Computed example of a mutant assay.
Amino acid sequence: MDNKEDLEITLIGTGTIGLSFAAFHLSHLSSPSQLTIYDTRPNLSQHIQETLPKFFNDRDAPLNITEINLATSLEGAVKSASIIQESGPENLDIKRKLWAEVERHAPKDALLWSSTSGIPASQQSQDMMDKARLLVVHPYNPPHIMPLLELVPSPSTSDAVIQRTKAFWEARNRTPIHIKRETTGFVANRLAFALLREAIHLVSEGVVSVSELDSIVENSMGPRWAVAGPFKSYHAGGGPAGLEGFFGNIGQTVQNCWDDAGRVDVGQGWEKGIFDMARSEYGTVDTEERDIVTRRVLQVIREEKEGAGDEK
């Protein structure tokens, strides 16, 4: 890839998200030696050698994994880093202790990012001397493919950190969105989990099966929302009158659905039936196929939008 960067990036944690970020950063750095990875697992080298290559497709340049720095201590991992990105366990105590130690050893101008799915920066930074440094940078899985990064500051996070982080991702053709205040689950997951809750209800009530519901999403709102989000989609659906026209036409149906959803309590006992159905219908999902299709969908959308922009 062109425009390789000369940065020192440290990743903490080598789960799915951590290694996905590793794959992304490696495609933008001048050399794998600019990436340092720290994890307490005893078989770290073997784990990376066996797992990291799976995040690259056949068209990517060969990866020399041996050039990646594997740190044996947190101090050694962060002492010269420009960016420190944590993708560790979703455990507040672990993250609080981690960031306090990172702060003691990292350069004063290093960017400190947490990839947490739901623990706010204001809680993670409680033991830090300078709480202005920490920012949640929440990806959408898998982050080496998906463009979205939710930038979720605490009330203490400095604007300079937010702007530097936003500039970093925009320069790499990603879509960083500044979430204006901390809220449970941030934004993308709240939207996704609202749909998941309704999906669980519909399957539990015997309206559709797990695979049928997935097929409905994949063949309707999935591709639609890849082109335009819900506001833009329904604004277009209202014709010349826009979103107001849409609600004027079928607003009562929308309200009826909202009222019905408000009365729904998925309660207890749904887990086993739905878990078993998903396992029976899907087994182990082929994430390689998922990634190939996702890349192609995003490429087509990008090409079409850029083409439409050139025609204006």
Rank of each mutant, 00 (worst) to 15 (best):
M221Y: 13
I301P: 05
P240E: 15
L243V: 05
E288A: 15
L7Q: 03
D214L: 03
N64Y: 06
P89V: 13
S204N: 13
E271C: 03
G185C: 06
M277Y: 03
D260I: 03
L74D: 09
Q46I: 14
D127W: 14
F275G: 00
G222H: 11
A22N: 05
G309D: 04
E101A: 02
L196C: 12
G251T: 03
D130I: 11
F55K: 02
A121C: 04
A171C: 05
V254Y: 06
N219Q: 10
H25K: 04
T116R: 08
L112M: 14
H144G: 09
A192F: 11
E90D: 07
M221F: 15
D159K: 15
Q123W: 06
D58A: 15
H105Y: 15
P143D: 12
P230T: 13
Q123R: 13
A188F: 04
N189Y: 08
E244D: 14
L29G: 02
P230W: 12
I119A: 04
I65S: 03
V136C: 06
K79N: 02
R41Y: 01
R224W: 06
E182Y: 00
N91F: 11
G13P: 00
L149S: 00
A278C: 10
Y140L: 13
L52D: 05
S211P: 08
S27H: 02
R190V: 10
L243R: 03
D60V: 07
L112H: 07
N69Q: 15
A121I: 02
P153H: 11
T66E: 15
T10K: 09
Q255R: 11
I250C: 11
N189C: 09
P139H: 04
V102T: 03
D259H: 11
W258I: 15
P153I: 10
P62K: 13
G206F: 08
V207D: 00
P223M: 13
K166P: 01
N91M: 12
E218W: 00
G88D: 09
T36A: 04
R295V: 12
L98E: 00
H47K: 07
T175M: 10
P42R: 08
P53E: 05
A71R: 01
R263L: 15
E288I: 14
P32S: 04
F56H: 02
S27L: 09
T66Q: 14
Q255E: 09
G309M: 01
I48E: 05
H201S: 12
Q299K: 13
P143C: 11
T287V: 15
D276H: 05
K97A: 15
D259A: 12
W225D: 06
E205S: 12
G307M: 01
G18E: 10
P143F: 10
I68L: 05
V285R: 07
L149E: 05
W258K: 12
R181T: 13
P155V: 03
A23Q: 06
Q85A: 11
R224P: 05
L11Y: 07
E303I: 12
